[in-house]
């Protein structure tokens, strides 16, 4: 109550009051508990970050929506195991057993070799697979939303996607995003 303070309102006590009030307001802010992520890339390596962050956010009690658009649709496609690949071409950051110029890594078979390499490396290190992360996401009620516009462009139907996927457009994403402190474009 203010009356108890107004006899001796020092600058420090005012600061302290303001700090407490802000913390109290922040605790009640529903946007703090909501996360919205856009997943726009369709390679194996880039399928991980949105799913890892979404499942971790759900584990901290957040309501999470992941909006899959453009090549990101690969991640929730029924055939994601086959569609998600990684290519060493144009990716100088990818660790290779021997240094490899683009002209070599662009040879036929190199993409599937790099994909197999990455999958086995991840499995050896006990990193969860994309399938496991998708299962965890759905178990923890992460909303997986496919972008209807890019689906139409690529010729996908709703049946092409794994169970539990919802469908929506930019307005649907923005409506969720404007209520979230945490929004990421990946």
């Amino acid at each position: 109550m203010l009356e108890t303070h107004d006899t001796k309102l020092t600058e420090d006590s005012v600061r302290q009051l303001v700090r407490e009030e802000i913390q109290r307001a922040f605790k009640k802010d529903p946007a703090k508990k909501q996360a919205c992520i856009i997943s726009s890339k369709g390679t194996l390596d880039w399928a991980y970050p949105p799913l890892i962050l979404a499942t971790a956010a759900a584990a901290t009690g957040m309501d999470v929506s992941v909006f899959f658009t453009f090549y990101g649709l690969n991640v929730i496609h029924k055939d994601f195991e086959r569609k998600l690949k990684v290519s060493p071409v144009g990716n100088p950051g990818m660790p290779m057993p021997v240094p490899m110029p683009d002209i070599v890594s662009s040879l036929p078979g190199m993409t599937s070799m790099a994909t197999t390499m990455m999958k086995s490396k991840f499995a050896n290190k006990h990193v969860a697979s994309i399938r496991e992360l998708l299962d965890v996401a759905r178990e923890s009620e992460v909303k997986l939303i496919a972008c209807q516009m890019t689906m139409d462009v690529f010729g996908y139907t709703q049946d092409d996607f794994i169970d539990g996927v919802e469908f929506g457009g930019a307005a649907a994403f923005l409506s969720e995003a404007r209520k979230s402190h945490l929004t990421l474009f990946i």
Binding site: T55, A56, T60, A128
Partner: peptide, 14 residues
């Protein structure tokens, strides 16, 4: 043990 990010936190949350 032997799990990597984000699984320890996911399991703990559950």
């Amino acid at each position: 043990r032997n799990l990597l990010c984000p699984m320890p936190v996911v399991k703990a949350g559950k």
